[in-house]
Amino acid sequence: MNLKSIVIVTILACLSSCGDSSNPTENNGTSSSQPAKAELVMKSAPQDSTAVKAMKDSVQDGDEVMVHGRIREFVEGFAGFTLVDEKMRHCDERNDDNCKTPWDYCCEDSTEMVNHSVTVEVHEDGRISKSTLSGLGGMDRLKNVVVEGKVKKSTDGNVIVIATGIFVRP
């Protein structure tokens, strides 16, 4: 009787542990999105990336691109951020400026900022993911990153990069 109980308990324990290992990816939506986001972070620096402005001037809708720049600000509540050409100088790079929010590039001309910026988004199931990229792999405002992804260009020229990989420069 005792031996029989031990065998049953052992079998049940094995079955339940198998079930547990499959849960995070199959049943829990939040957990399943975590590995996908972590996979975005590239471990080595990609070669031959282009600056934001040069990329914007030359790309067509659907092009695969590798673009480098600096994170301006994250999109509230979504996996996205604005990437700015490194040519643009944020307020901390100006010696005479004591701006408390240097990432807003308030010292730069707004039209130039538009020409030198692009939105980067991470999609899941064809839609922007509802999670933040802030902190992922060390991503923060004004951090230099290289983004690999596909271009979505609207008819009026607005460019969005749907990221498939992001490298955060040390």
Partner: peptide, 15 residues
């Protein structure tokens, strides 16, 4: 509200 913020940050051309 986040969707409106997303629109503003996607449409950089509209400033």
């Amino acid at each position: 509200m986040d969707y409106v913020d997303l629109f503003a940050k996607r449409r950089l051309d509209l400033e």
